[in-house]
Nucleic acid binder design. Sequence first.
DNA 1: TAGTGGTCTAGACCACTTC
DNA 2: AAGTGGTCTAGACCACTAA
Lengths: 261, 261
Amino acid sequence: MQQASGAVARGSGRPLYREIADDLLAGIGQGIFPVGTLLPGEMELIQRYQSSRHTVREALRVLEDMGIVQRQRGRGTLVLSPEAQPAFVQMVKSPEELFSYPADSAFRVVAEEAVTLSGSAAQRLKAVKGSRWTRMSGPRTFESGMPVCWTDVYVLPEYATIARQLGGANSRPVYEIISKAFGEEVQKIGIEIYASSFDEERAKALGVDVGTPSLCLCRRYYGNKGRLFEISVSEHPAQNYSYSLEFTSGWQNAGHWSWNK
Amino acid sequence: MQQASGAVARGSGRPLYREIADDLLAGIGQGIFPVGTLLPGEMELIQRYQSSRHTVREALRVLEDMGIVQRQRGRGTLVLSPEAQPAFVQMVKSPEELFSYPADSAFRVVAEEAVTLSGSAAQRLKAVKGSRWTRMSGPRTFESGMPVCWTDVYVLPEYATIARQLGGANSRPVYEIISKAFGEEVQKIGIEIYASSFDEERAKALGVDVGTPSLCLCRRYYGNKGRLFEISVSEHPAQNYSYSLEFTSGWQNAGHWSWNK
DNA sequence: TAGTGGTCTAGACCACTTC
DNA sequence: AAGTGGTCTAGACCACTAA
């Protein structure tokens, strides 16, 4: 229950800043502080809750960590959402983890060409129709020769020179090479997963039967200013590959260690 | 560079607590504070950095938010990892978002039976061999009759009574029904995605050709105390379905709004 | 019991945004 | 210029853990 003016109830054993956060949250939920408006300033909250600035700020920090408000010096505290944003979180350390290849496999570029995306290709890649890319294609295989996948990598034409650094067993991921060579900071990665089956050409290249079910992963890398700078599409023989994810409840410290009590 | 004893350099324009956090981070990286040991107490850090407790605690909070240390009253500050844990974060509001079905589709249970997992089935489901489950199977179709997927849902035998609440266009997800009815709080969800192709029985049930490529999603729900309580496997005709993910850089506020500058 | 981190108060100065 | 949030100090009491 939101207290329009006055301190929150105490004595429950809960910290004051949590009570204040709950009270503000209730107020937001009830529309007393609608989404898109500013919360009262810290000074006003101090008086309202008869508390100190530190305590009020702790309460606001709780809401900020939950993604409910966003604070900015000089402006105020903006209400973003009436309820906690993420209930489930997945974290990975680096983009590499999103789609790591076996260490003893190698990517061999067999074709490199400049392409301008037709409508259908652009739609499939979720890129802009008519945009220009340099495409490098080839199989990735284990040292034993067993196929891992067929890969098409699209990069911006100005980054085409990285092709020389590709290939070989120890080659780094393309996004990483570009990131280092051209200073692109990876800001966002989109992944799309779908099933298909191998056409004749690729089946032959990988040494599998035509029509073999395949798992396709299309990854889009966004760099500085959110610009799309790389798209890679990999097609894996179904029996060799699966993609796993794990989501954990809670906003904080998801997936970390704990005290070995 | 970690200052073994003494204040960090100032005047860089960066807040003191960030400088301290960086300094501690460097110390952790250099093995001065090895992973698994405790950081110096707050009082010692106050003297080392000639600062106030609040400032030192802000620095420690930074490290805690990054997943580098874990703090506990009475014990101390445990070093967990030498480097920032998650560089990329994906967040979803509820498990439902991890695999939402079209609203105008309905799941129809055509078979329900008690099963004891054989070795191969247990391996495929990543469950314990010999464990007992109740399996409910059936197609999910649009109102128009077009197939969405074939689904096998495995639940713990004691939850089998939820079968009566299944089916119909507006039916809630199984995990949600169980969660409400039996108080299982979903703590973790595992998702595995792979490609396959439809066998004769399922192809017939969904009205697709035998051998049609399919995208399979196997979801595992872990509840109270991390106990696995539901497994669901869905097989989708490839042309109708793809699975998308998006990962954003940074630990904090990933995916939230921003000021409409 | 000593030491840890958790909460809280009462001040202060500053950078930033808006008017 | 006024108001916002960001940083910082110097104190205080408390709950929890470990020895």
